[in-house]
Amino acid sequence: MTPTPELPVDPDVDLRVPADRGELAAHPAAVLGAIAAGGALGALARAGLQATFPHPPTGFPWATFGINVVGSLLIGVLMAVLTARPAGPLLRPFLGVGVLGGFTTFSTYVVDTQQAVTAGAPGTALAYLAATLVGALLAVWTGDTVTSRLLVRAGGAAR
């Protein structure tokens, strides 16, 4: 028996969904370029917000909290839109992985938590840890659910 050649697989692509398989048609260099360009834009937006709204080590990091919750909401919106109306093979990598991946910053979330604990504010660290986790999960669910319902009402594809 001749082995079948392996296709390059993006773990976010469901190969059982024809629209998702379309993403595999893009050249890997184009996908990486789209992700890099989007990531640069997202990271610049995040850095600008964090510079505009700094916080002391013992204070609640509102900028990072807001960035992660808003970014999670937008990820939910994007996934609902792309599920209802599939787009070109570079849109999800550019917006989802690049822009929103560069914008959200769960690594800074962990660093902010560690700094608050080290600075003697474990209560702030625990509140921030829990609020970000719950806020981000609720935001992505809300973005996906509300957008899906709006798209169905507007005549988009039903789930």
Rank of each mutant, 00 (worst) to 15 (best):
108 T>F: 01
109 Y>H: 02
93 P>N: 07
129 L>S: 11
132 T>V: 09
94 F>H: 06
127 A>C: 07
116 A>D: 12
124 T>D: 13
97 V>M: 00
97 V>L: 00
110 V>L: 12
108 T>Q: 02
108 T>D: 00
83 T>R: 15
84 A>L: 14
95 L>R: 02
124 T>C: 11
117 V>A: 11
117 V>S: 06
130 A>G: 08
94 F>D: 02
95 L>M: 03
90 L>Y: 08
128 Y>P: 07
107 S>V: 06
129 L>H: 09
103 F>Y: 07
134 V>P: 00
99 V>H: 03
111 V>I: 14
132 T>K: 07
137 L>E: 08
138 L>A: 13
131 A>S: 12
128 Y>K: 04
89 P>F: 10
119 A>L: 10
105 T>Y: 02
130 A>K: 05
104 T>Q: 06
135 G>L: 07
138 L>S: 05
131 A>W: 03
83 T>Y: 10
125 A>Q: 10
107 S>G: 09
113 T>I: 09
115 Q>V: 14
96 G>A: 00
103 F>K: 02
127 A>S: 13
133 L>D: 06
118 T>M: 15
98 G>K: 00
136 A>D: 01
112 D>W: 01
105 T>L: 05
127 A>L: 15
93 P>A: 08
138 L>G: 11
109 Y>T: 03
107 S>T: 14
112 D>G: 01
98 G>S: 00
110 V>E: 15
92 R>C: 10
110 V>W: 09
103 F>S: 03
108 T>M: 01
96 G>C: 00
110 V>S: 15
137 L>R: 05
133 L>H: 07
135 G>Y: 04
81 V>E: 07
81 V>R: 13
90 L>P: 13
135 G>E: 03
110 V>T: 15
119 A>D: 10
98 G>R: 00
84 A>R: 13
85 R>K: 14
127 A>T: 11
124 T>Q: 12
105 T>I: 04
90 L>M: 10
80 A>S: 06
113 T>L: 11
138 L>I: 03
136 A>N: 06
93 P>W: 08
112 D>K: 01
134 V>K: 00
91 L>C: 08
111 V>W: 07
134 V>Q: 00
106 F>E: 04
87 A>S: 15
102 G>T: 02
107 S>C: 09
120 G>A: 06
118 T>G: 11
136 A>Y: 02
122 P>R: 02
97 V>G: 01
129 L>Q: 12
106 F>K: 03
80 A>H: 04
80 A>N: 05
119 A>T: 12
109 Y>E: 02
117 V>K: 11
92 R>H: 11
127 A>F: 12
133 L>A: 14
102 G>H: 03
96 G>L: 00
131 A>V: 04
105 T>V: 05
113 T>S: 14
101 G>R: 01
88 G>P: 10
120 G>P: 08
131 A>N: 05
123 G>C: 07
121 A>L: 03
81 V>P: 08
83 T>F: 12
136 A>W: 01
109 Y>L: 05
80 A>F: 02
113 T>H: 11
134 V>N: 00
118 T>V: 15
113 T>R: 10
